[in-house]
Design a protein around this nucleic acid. Structure first.
Lengths: 186, 186
DNA sequence: ATTTAATATTAAAATATTTGCATATTATTT
DNA sequence: AAATAATATGCAAATATTTTAATATTAAAT
């Protein structure tokens, strides 16, 4: 259900888009707080149109295949507003790596260290991508501070900040874990 | 699928347990990296028994209803070991609050601040619980340092550390967000 | 005595997510 | 000319998770 609202918030803030555009937007930016596949996105956009939360227009293209561009409707905006006002619970965490660590004494420490190093790289890459996004989308933050942003931009910047914190924390924890396991090797 | 392995790792490390005990263990500790409902737990324990990964024994009790205690088998241990050796992907993040923030300009800033303060409390409570767990389960860490732990304990301590980092980061981010939104109020 | 709480477990429907497969158009490269 | 890549979209099965609804035993509280 929240997927629908994540889509609506993208249509509202990032503007009207085709399913393909939304998917790209999700892959690039939104995945730092909501991951979705293209199958989910296309389906949900169609279902929201049935409910009148989105409307669509087919755009003929010569350079590329035609596309269907979706926009948020007034009803969609109302629904989104109502949803934003609802309290939300923290996400259920399901982190395989932690279960693996708990029974990590079953395998050679080198295997754990290798996997942790791999994970650290993944999160470092994620962190770099988010920082690049911050530099691109919010350049004034670095010169004039976050207060220079419009209210709308500042809100989205906060979501990005959370992504940056999250990935940073992962990188640091991986480092801590690699060091710790190293203590037990001779 | 990972649920099965999260269960096996608990049976291995925390010892043989009834479904009820496992659920309690998940609610108290394991939920910091793997959340599961009791319905999931009981079902998966039964299914793993069919596959020979766990075995069970009915324990007659007089003070309480009878219970079925599950243990990990050699096969289960082998399967778990093989799984631990597999690389694992970072979890897909799905955080409603961030989508709400992105379209947060639709509602009064006070509503956002109230929700963020509520969330901050939830994460502060989670953090306190994890720190209490650390003090209870790993008391020597505070006196003799983490190096005093056995390898097995240290590995699990690392998972707990990740939980502590995660909740701390949330508390800090909530503070940052509350301050930021405050900047736009007069 | 009756209600409430804790222990202990199960079934099944409803949702959500993942995975595999498919199709079609246009631009670009080999 | 043919292959590849990017754009653009869809269906359906398989899994996983959440939600709703039960049932039964024992201890403790009202």
């Amino acid at each position: 259900m929240a997927l629908a609202y994540a889509l609506l918030s993208s249509l509202l803030v990032d503007g009207s888009q085709s399913g393909y555009d939304v998917v790209k937007c999700f892959d690039e930016q939104i995945s730092c707080y909501w991951r979705a596949t293209h199958q989910q996105v296309y389906k949900e956009l169609r279902e929201m149109e049935k409910k009148g939360w989105t409307c669509s227009e087919t755009i003929a293209q010569t350079q590329r295949p035609n596309k269907t561009v979706y926009s948020i409707t007034d009803l969609g905006r109302q629904e989104l507003t109502a949803w934003v006002l609802q309290p939300s619970q923290p996400t259920a965490i399901r982190e395989e790596l932690m279960a693996k660590l708990k029974s990590g004494f079953l395998v050679p420490p080198t295997a754990l260290i290798a996997e942790l190093a791999r994970r650290q790289q993944i999160h470092q890459a994620g962190l770099n991508a988010l920082k690049a996004m911050e530099a691109t989308d919010f350049p004034t933050v670095f010169t004039a501070g976050a207060k220079s942003l419009s209210y709308e931009a500042r809100l989205y910047h906060l979501a990005l900040r959370r992504g940056i914190r999250y990935e940073s924390e992962w990188v640091e924890w991986c480092e801590e874990a690699i060091q710790a396991i190293g203590d037990y090797q001779q």
